[in-house]
Design a protein around this nucleic acid. Structure first.
Length: 328
DNA sequence: ATGGTTTTTACTGCGTC
DNA sequence: GACGCGGTAAAAACCAT
């Protein structure tokens, strides 16, 4: 693992340098094309067919590994980076468990007793403040849901920042933590330009019902005045096409023509007011027809969680718009 | 609350494998 | 007969006001 992580670091520093890190990783096992890391979306995408090979790949831990505490002492240099994922940003005091003093000598039994009490109190102070306790729980939930949905660290950090702001502005009293966390995570996905449909969150959230989450989301948008642009349907294409998996023979061609169809749709203003997931699904089904993939409306509807009726109503207009433009 | 819009549900007939 | 597809009407959900 250390190899790839080092590769990613290098790539981060020298952004154009992509030949090296991609050539040493493998090729797409679907079409054999080259895999490219898309940093901002946290995906590894095949250049040729658009298969999302890896999601949630980016996790920049320390670039070294240690197999025992001695090795850890030798290699560790600067400590962990500060992170919004810990309620105290990872900056609070931590009293080691080893019962050794600064020179590595074992402590006497009375000293050990003292340390034990100090540890207890330290832990108490650390989480004493009610907001801190709240935050601790909330960030645990961010972590839990994000990993259930395969979201990367960037999204988690963003969600944490959003939630912190809610907390600081005293927006929480009277609202469920869970709903606010879910809404923060959803907003974070959109801000990071890797949107998930809000529906995707309901299976993993512990919020009582959907309405609560939606209200919380609106509330966050309003109070933190985050102007959110409507989601670009194109950002769902890779996700859906990959979920369709074997049912598609030429993913690259499909993605391209889906995008063209969406372009045409927007030029003819057929898109406003329609749900972006429905547009993406419609585009995929339409290009399935063009390239004679045997994709059924049901299959496309499945991955986009849309009904077959919606697919029908979308794709017909979109296809017409696309054909009109390409007729001349 | 209301009205306009989109989406879903349920049901239909048609053609094909 | 099962399946995919197209269409419809009515209900439900959504959104701005």
């Amino acid at each position: 693992m250390s190899e790839t992580q080092r590769g990613e670091r290098r790539q981060e520093q020298e952004t154009q340098e992509e030949t090296e890190s991609t050539s040493e990783t493998n090729n797409c096992n679907d079409c054999g094309g080259r895999l490219r890391t898309n940093e901002s979306r946290g995906e590894v995408v095949c250049e040729d067919c658009g298969l999302v090979a890896e999601q949630d790949e980016i996790d920049r831990g320390p670039e070294w590994r240690a197999f025992d505490s001695q090795e850890r002492d030798e290699k560790s240099r600067v400590g962990a980076p500060t992170t919004n994922l810990m309620h105290d940003k990872g900056l609070s005091t931590d009293i080691g468990w080893q019962n050794k003093d600064a020179h590595g000598r074992t402590l006497s039994s009375t000293q050990r007793e003292k340390m034990k009490r100090l540890r207890t109190w330290n832990e108490r102070f650390r989480t004493q403040d009610s907001k801190e306790r709240n935050l601790k729980q909330a960030l645990g939930e961010v972590e839990r849901m994000a990993s259930a949905l395969g979201l990367n660290k960037q999204v988690k950090e963003t969600a944490s920042v959003l939630y912190r702001r809610c907390l600081e502005e005293d927006m929480l009293p009277g609202r469920s933590i869970e709903a606010m966390v879910t809404a923060s995570l959803y907003a974070a996905c959109r801000q990071c330009d890797m949107p998930r449909a809000l529906d995707d969150f309901f299976p993993v959230t512990r919020a009582r019902d959907d309405m609560e989450v939606k209200r919380a989301y609106k509330y966050i948008m309003k109070e933190l005045n985050l102007g959110m642009e409507p989601i670009d349907p194109r950002s769902f294409l890779n996700q859906y096409l990959s979920d369709l998996g074997d049912k598609i023979s030429n993913r690259q061609k499909m993605r391209q023509s889906s995008e063209e169809i969406l372009d045409a749709t927007e030029r003819e203003n057929l898109h406003s007011g329609k749900s972006p997931t429905a547009l993406a699904a419609g585009a995929i089904y339409a290009s399935g027809l063009i390239h004679s993939e045997d994709l059924t409306q049901g299959e496309v509807g499945e991955v986009a969680s849309k009904s077959t009726v919606t697919i029908r109503n979308r794709y017909q207009d979109m296809l017409k718009a696309y054909r009109n433009e390409n007729a001349e």
